[in-house]
Design a protein around this nucleic acid. Structure first.
Lengths: 192, 192
DNA sequence: TTGACTTCGTTGCATCCGCAACTATAAACA
DNA sequence: TGTTTATAGTTGCGGATGCAACGAAGTCAA
């Protein structure tokens, strides 16, 4: 249950001011749009609460944060490090460039995550035999173990998330997200 | 169109190695799972490409990045600054605490965004008359103008996104995301 | 071969962020 | 009242990130 909201700041008479009770209504699941100070901007017709990038960000941060505690507390991994590890775990050995292409993570982020994962013994680099600029990245035995452990935890975390949406809803969500990702113009480029 | 993938690193014989043609298949929209080096981890059953936090992050970053260019190039705003501005534009004057509660943005991020927006003349602070710890934040006339302009651009950006999903798909997506956001355990807490 | 151009990956620098610690005020309660 | 606990908001600090610039290697064509 959310904490009590902003105890004594209510000022019913003041125009355009979000009151304590108004906030409670805004935050409520069945938020009755239009009954309260909330409004779509009259000139632009913009409604923040229907803006997909905003909703996507909130959902992404809310869900990612939950699982972040797992890999951060156990191994001190960054989100990027976890993602790189997971990509190598899933797809097998490949170059940093391939990871960028698959995961849409920026190359400098990958470069630093790879350095950190190498430092902590999760992966090794081998010079590519066909392109001396590139290095083939492979998980070590320990890296695979860690991936296995975190993967198991990820599975149950994901199960819980999907439970709140129902099987059909979760599948639909995944499919819609994939469509957005594929339709995204950039394959490389900066990240945030 | 995506850049050519990893020109000459293909080594067909090497086990567990993602090849150039394999990558192309992984990235293709109709990616035929299981026909290629991709695999769910045998011990944990973890499949990265079905992990909701991962999909949500990719979709969020892909879509946010597109619109970020708008507010960054025009006004030098951070994503957090844009979000704070948009919340004040939509909900009217309120305290930093209210913004945290509504948007799930961490309080230090809000504090810094507010300072920057005040600096650039987008908002003003007034001491709350009922709680001398709190300050009521209001957009200035200029802040409202900027919100109107960015709001208009956001509307058309969002229209394009929704077009790739269809009206029904976009509505369904928004509804599912809201469910995840509401179900999220934390109302405050750290952000990423 | 030479030279122009592209690509893989790293690094410097400025910024942004997360977390903990802090001040000032408010609320709860003996 | 006085004491304890909780809340609004800011700041210091270490770490993560974005971007541009770079070195090294590959590609292509004259």
């Amino acid at each position: 249950m959310p904490a009590r909201l902003h105890g004594g700041a209510s000022r019913p008479g003041e125009a355009g001011r979000v009151t304590s009770s108004g906030l409670r209504a805004i935050l409520a699941p069945e938020h009755d749009k239009g009954a309260l100070p909330t409004m779509t901007d009259p000139t632009s017709g913009f409604d923040l609460e229907e803006f997909l990038p905003y909703l996507l960000n909130q959902a992404a941060e809310a869900t990612s944060h939950g699982f972040q505690a797992v890999y951060r507390d156990r191994y001190g991994f960054t989100r990027t490090q976890w993602r790189v590890l997971a990509n190598l775990g899933k797809f097998g050995a490949m170059t940093a460039r391939d990871i960028c292409a698959i995961s849409h993570i920026e190359k400098t982020k990958v470069s630093r995550a790879v350095a950190a994962l190498e430092q902590s013994g999760m992966l090794t680099r081998a010079p590519s035999e066909t392109d001396r600029r590139a290095e083939v990245l492979s998980l070590t035995a320990r890296g695979r173990d860690v991936f296995g452990e975190l993967g198991g935890l990820a599975v149950s975390f994901d199960r819980q998330l999907r439970a709140t949406l129902g099987r059909e809803g979760a599948d639909r969500l995944a499919s819609l997200l994939r469509r957005l990702i594929v339709a995204s113009p950039r394959t490389d480029g900066p990240d945030t």
